[in-house]
Design a protein around this nucleic acid. Structure first.
Length: 793
DNA sequence: AGACCTCCTG
DNA sequence: CAGGAGGTCT
């Protein structure tokens, strides 16, 4: 470029013009425009030479206008002088011997004026020439860059072609996605046709922009802008350093390749989410979308994009929350010295009675084998303890049980309550410690009836170990008192089928997910109806009843619907007003769907980035009809019967607590209380019946052995009494009768036996005392009963 | 008076 | 298991 220095320097060669610095060949080789052919006029001939005046005139970077004018005038004067001399010589030659005089002077003056005019004209010409020359100079530089531009153009075209390819791939991918999302076949065909049409347009299809849709156009524009930006960058870089542009080009190429790679990846696999920002990779399987009926094609496109966006956002946010919780949980787990290998979802395990009975909600996922083995082992150990106590007359092994429990492997259970007394209610003070085996008829003065423990009774030999003694042992079979034997005791119920092991962290994920969804998508679920899902304090659904726990969901009795109507009709019998209300109308709850996911893997990739791979599974639940009704269903009756294993005298508050789905009114409460009254009635009838039988059996033998025989009064799982009770309260035998109930039954049997043996049964109120005892032997209900539905365990 | 119980009956 | 009678308790 010209510079003030150049301009200043150019003035000096002006003095020695006519010495062409550049041959005409040098110039004409590039530009030989006829308009610039130097005329024969000598005055301007030198102007054609490089470094002449026009450079000064046409100089863009002239220091100032005055100096420019001054310098031009000076050169003009010089030019004129020279020209004058030349013309003088020429004129002398032409005119031959003309004497110099006034004419000469006039001529000179005229010539001078002409020369001035000529100089002015020539100045203008010089300006033009100079400008032309500069243009030529510029063109020369442009010519030099032309080759480079050619290369760029080619490169640009290549990029365009690549972009076209990428666009085609993208379109193919789009088609695939649309197809997956239920796009109509016609649209596919249209797109395919369009694609093939585009491909038929030669040379990458310069005209294909005409048929491109808006999205493609947008992409094209974006890409073009990208390229233009690259070109500008390249231009600016080109004068500085090639390496910069190369780097830029490489970066761009890298980006393009990445884009293509992503497209390739998207084409290959299923729906795969890649969240690069938080460095989280998620593989989602099983996500499908049904058909949606859009209006026009554009609307469908828009809908689809919106859907994809919303889905992305929703998944992203939900997953982020879940991941956060998982990681937190993971951290908490690793922080503990002995983290559990897995977490079960046994609400009862965390209940105050769960350690002993472990009523769980067998649902879609059931208790793990290990836990079942643990349970069996525990029960077996308890049985052994019971027998030891009965045989050896030891005290209830509370602490022993505690240690025993602590020795048990608990691979699948996380016991939440550190209170062993809560977990193992039998660890409390023994019940009738003052029961005097020598005075069995005086059992009513127990000072601590609140903590019953028949283990404090004298040891009772099991009939299996004493087959000969069974004849002397009360068989609790009134119809066959004399022929009572072990054969009358049915075999214990077969253990439930081994449940499936739980996947790692499943329950935790359930919990996490349920907690992460603060706004359940159950619009049909009235807020008041959600409350009953929130009764379990451990599961903490109180603030987010979004997702019922799997155990609960899986244990819905399919027969509920079948029996519901009948039960409803008669459930409030005797109260016309209630019957007129329609009972369950509007009180049905349908839980139609939930989301479960399994944490498959948590680890680090090659780059050390922590990632969590989740497998999502959407599942549709059976329409679970939950009786949020005023009447009571057979399921409630069933549950009430199971509750009777724990509490014989439940208060109405207890009933309301453990039947959260029931809308209680006076009639429902009375009905439920009546149920328990009937349960008690049956219970006491059986107790009295078997006790009388035992008394009869004792009386048929010699009285000397009656004390010993009385001490052999026992209720175990292989006795007839147990079978009768189990049949009545647990007909389907899906629930394991808690040991506690057996113990209570034994206490009741002994009390009845004592009363009858001592003749107190002659008193019309002789049972009251027994009732008092039994009513104090109620146990807290497992938390599993807080859930709607019937627990299985 | 109302809640709750047992007992009896069907 | 429900209904009713009769009782007790608060």
């Amino acid at each position: 470029m010209d510079s003030p220095t150049d301009l200043f320097d150019d003035s000096s060669p002006q003095m020695r013009t006519f010495t062409p610095g550049l041959s005409s060949a040098d110039l004409s080789g590039v530009h030989a425009a006829p308009s610039f052919r130097p005329p024969g006029f000598p005055l301007i001939h030198h102007l054609l030479q490089p470094g002449g005046g026009p450079r000064r005139i046409g100089g863009i970077l002239t220091p100032s206008l005055n100096s420019q004018r001054h310098m031009a005038a000076r050169s003009l004067e010089e030019d004129v002088t020279v020209g004058q001399m030349e013309r003088g010589m020429e004129g002398a030659e032409e005119e031959g011997g003309m004497m110099e005089g006034e004419d000469d002077l006039t001529e000179v003056k005229r010539k001078c004026s002409d020369t001035v005019l000529m100089a002015e004209w020539s100045q203008d010409v010089m300006k033009v020439k100079r400008m032309k020359f500069e243009c030529r100079q510029k063109d020369k530089a442009v010519e030099e860059d032309g080759k480079r531009r050619e290369g760029r153009r080619r490169e640009k075209e290549e990029l365009k072609e690549q972009l076209e390819e990428a666009r085609e791939r993208l379109q193919a991918l789009q088609e695939k996605v649309w197809r997956a999302f239920g796009e109509k076949a016609e649209k596919e065909e249209r797109k395919r046709k369009r694609l093939t049409g585009n491909r038929c347009d030669g040379d990458g299809g310069r005209d294909e922009g005409m048929v491109e849709d808006e999205e493609d156009l947008t992409g094209e524009m974006y890409d073009e802008e990208d390229i233009d930006a690259a070109e500008m960058e390249k231009d600016s870089f080109s004068l500085l350093s090639v390496s910069h542009y190369d780097n830029f080009s490489k970066r761009k190429e890298q980006l393009r390749k990445d884009r293509e790679r992503r497209l390739e990846r998207g084409r290959e696999g299923d729906v795969e989410g890649i969240v690069e920002g938080p460095r989280l990779w998620l593989e989602c399987g099983g996500l499908t979308r049904g058909d949606w009926d859009g209006g026009t094609e554009e609307e469908e496109d828009e809908e689809g994009q919106k859907f994809a966006k919303a889905l992305k956002l929703e998944l992203g946010s939900a997953v982020a929350r879940v991941i956060d919780r998982v990681l937190r949980l993971y951290t908490e787990m690793t922080e503990h010295a002995s983290p559990p290998a897995a977490i079960s979802f046994h609400p009862s395990d965390q209940g105050h009675d769960g350690g002993k009975e472990r009523e769980g909600w067998m649902g879609l996922l059931t208790r793990g084998r290990a836990e079942e083995a643990t349970k069996e082992k525990e029960d077996g150990d308890r049985e052994q303890q019971l027998r030891k106590m009965k045989n050896g007359g030891g005290l209830p092994p509370g602490p022993l049980r505690c240690s025993e429990q602590s020795d048990l492997p608990m691979p699948l259970a996380v016991h939440r309550s550190p209170d062993t007394r809560k977990t193992f209610p039998l660890l409390g003070p023994p019940l009738s410690t003052n029961v005097n085996s020598s005075h069995p008829n005086l059992p009513l003065h127990h000072p601590s009836l609140t903590r019953p423990t028949p283990l404090a009774h004298p040891p009772l030999l099991p009939p299996a170990s004493q087959p000969k003694e069974t004849s002397s042992t009360t068989s609790f079979h009134p119809s066959s008192s004399s022929s009572s034997s072990s054969s009358s005791f049915p075999a214990p119920p077969p253990p439930p089928p081994p449940p499936l092991p739980l996947p790692l962290l499943h329950y935790s994920m359930q919990q996490l997910f349920s907690r992460s969804l603060h706004h359940p998508q159950l619009p049909h679920l009235a807020p008041s109806r959600k409350d009953y899902l929130t009764s379990d304090p451990f599961l903490e659904f109180s603030s987010h009843a979004s997702f019922p726990p799997l155990p609960f969901l899986g244990h819905l009795d399919p027969s509920l619907t079948r029996h519901g109507v009948r039960e409803r009709e008669r459930g409030v019998r005797g109260d016309g007003s209630i019957r007129g209300n329609g009972g369950m109308d509007g009180g049905e709850l349908y839980l139609t769907a939930g989301i479960s996911f399994f944490c498959l893997y948590v680890g680090r990739n090659n780059e050390g980035v922590l990632f969590v791979r989740l497998f999502f599974s959407l599942f549709v639940l059976n329409r679970c009809r939950l009786h949020t009704q005023e009447g009571l269903s057979p399921c409630h009756l069933k549950k009430a019967k199971l509750m009777f294993f724990y509490t014989r005298y439940p208060s109405s508050n207890t009933l309301k607590t453990y039947f959260p789905e029931v809308k209680f009114n006076r009639c429902v409460t009375s009905q439920m209380i009546k149920w328990f009254s009937n349960f008690r009635e049956f219970f006491y009838i059986q107790m009295e019946r078997f006790a009388r039988q035992a008394v009869r059996d004792a009386l048929t033998r010699d009285g000397a052995a009656r004390l010993g025989r009385e001490s052999q009064l026992r209720v175990s799982r292989d006795t007839e009494l147990y079978r009768v009770l189990n049949m009545h309260y647990n007909k389907s035998n899906v629930y394991q009768v808690p040991e506690r109930f057996i113990e209570v039954s034994e206490v009741a049997l002994r009390e009845f036996y004592s009363a009858i043996w001592t003749g107190r049964d002659s008193d019309p109120c002789w049972k009251k005392g027994i009732y008092k005892i039994i009513c104090k032997l109620d146990s807290p209900l497992p938390d599993a009963f807080r859930m709607p539905g019937c627990p299985v365990g």
